[in-house]
Amino acid sequence: MAALAPVGEVVREPSARRAAGVSARRRRRLNAFRYLVFTVFGLFFALPLLAMARFSLEGAKLGTWSVTAWSQIASYQGTQAVGIPPLISSIEITLELAVITCAVIVLLLVPTMIWIRLRVRWLSRTFEFLCLLPLTIPAIVLVVGLGPIYNRIQRVSLSALMLFWVYVILALPYAYRALAAGLGGLDVTTLAEAARSLGARWLTVIVRVIVPNMWQAIINALLLTSALVLGEFTIAYLLLYNNLQVELYSISRNTPNAGVLFATSTAALAFAFALLLILSYVGRRRRRSRG
């Protein structure tokens, strides 16, 4: 059978040609400017953090180094004499909260958003409004509103994991935005119609065609959600739950060493950084494996 001659079109290579157009000198100047901006902003962000780390390592006499503050948080036992240090259990709780919140958010939002895009377009405005609403409500108002509800919840379960109800609501706007951006870049309707004409049912369309094309958006949503859970203090504190932030706060208050305050803050930051780095690294790997 007659195979066709290849069509005379080549996939474009965008970067090379554009760079050649700019003269070398201009490019160098542009680069210098780039580095300058990067340095200035880098310092702006890094200096306070470095200072905080330095203070956490301050010895008893000014200008000396010591790890006392760090060993104090690690060995902090609070009111209990033995058992798992509260810091460790609060880390555990916070991680579990992050996982639960992420799972609920994704299971809730991804199918709903795809369904709205595919079948009930007219709902999308309302849905967006609902999802963005928590952004406009101050935490304290939320807590006041949630107080009675949590009274009820605490009758059933005292676990700090019950915080996930609020966290899902808090994370809604961020996760929604991330997912909406991912969906917006896809021609969902055409993909779905193509899949259906090939014999896919609606569930197959969502699971095998749409979702695999929005992994990046899902991972972004997960990143934002877990960042929020890891850093949440106000609501947990006001609802009298001990998550990581609350625990760090109480350690720094209950230890007569100023360095502990800085050490706990640094620890909290480092913890969140490390987790987010891991998550975004996972996301990058996925993307690359796809070419």
């Binding site: 896809l186 055409t190 993909l191 119609e193 193509a194 899949a195 004409s197 065609v209 695999p212 094309n213």
Partner: peptide
């Protein structure tokens, strides 16, 4: 069915 818009599954 072949569509007017490009409809291949990108992934």
């Amino acid at each position: 069915m072949v569509f007017q818009a490009y409809s291949l599954f990108p992934h």
